[in-house]
Simulated scan of single mutants.
Amino acid sequence: MGDTGFENHLLAYARLVDPCTATVVATSDAGRLVIAVSGSIDVQASATVADQLGRMIGAGDHERVVLDLSGVEFCDCAGARALLAVHELAEAAGIACTVEGPRPHIRWLLELTGVAAVLGLTPQG
């Protein structure tokens, strides 16, 4: 096994250099905006991610926004709150907003916090 202490120090240093550990990429077609989020939506990245998502949603004339979370590897409660805030922003602007593809552990967090129901994720059983 490797030295996890050293790996943790490297991760901490990487976050100091680049605190946003998430990537956000948008594509648009026929009134639908698909925003793919990847990486970690944690307490350090949540404000930046919410800001980026909000600007992307506000920048165009979209009828529907899809947040593709299939590339999200980690999300904490701050990240869940950021997703909820973006959803509320879209809905307030009259834009339907849905979430697709969260990994099982991300879905679990969203269900546990009650955010899944607001985002329109159906429970898995």
Rank of each mutant, 00 (worst) to 15 (best):
R64W: 05
C77H: 13
F6Y: 11
P104W: 02
D18H: 15
R81M: 10
G60L: 07
A14P: 00
Y13E: 14
F74P: 02
L16A: 10
R15C: 05
R55H: 13
D76C: 02
A36L: 11
C77W: 02
H87A: 07
E91K: 07
I35S: 11
A117Q: 13
E100T: 15
L110C: 06
G31P: 08
N8V: 07
S46K: 02
V25H: 15
F6M: 09
V118P: 03
E88G: 03
E91D: 14
V86Y: 03
F74M: 03
E63L: 09
V65D: 10
A59K: 12
M1C: 07
G54K: 05
A92V: 00
A116T: 08
G58H: 07
R81A: 14
G79E: 04
G79N: 06
S46V: 06
R81P: 00
H62N: 09
L16I: 06
A93F: 00
P102N: 07
L53N: 06
T48W: 02
D76H: 07
A47D: 15
L69R: 08
I35C: 12
H105D: 11
V24P: 08
A93D: 09
V37G: 01
P102I: 04
E111S: 11
S38T: 14
R64H: 15
S70F: 07
P123T: 05
I95T: 10
T113E: 03
G39Y: 04
V37W: 03
R32K: 12
V34A: 15
A93I: 00
L109S: 01
L121M: 04
A92F: 02
A26Q: 13
H105R: 14
T113D: 05
D51P: 00
P104Q: 05
V115L: 05
D76N: 04
L109P: 01
C77F: 05
A26R: 13
R81D: 09
G58T: 10
R103P: 00
G114I: 00
A90P: 05
A93T: 01
G120W: 05
I35Y: 11
I106K: 03
T122W: 03
P123R: 01
L89N: 07
A93G: 06
G2P: 13
L53R: 04
V49Y: 01
R32M: 13
T113S: 15
L10K: 09
F6R: 15
A78Y: 08
V72S: 02
D61N: 13
A96K: 13
L109I: 00
A116Q: 00
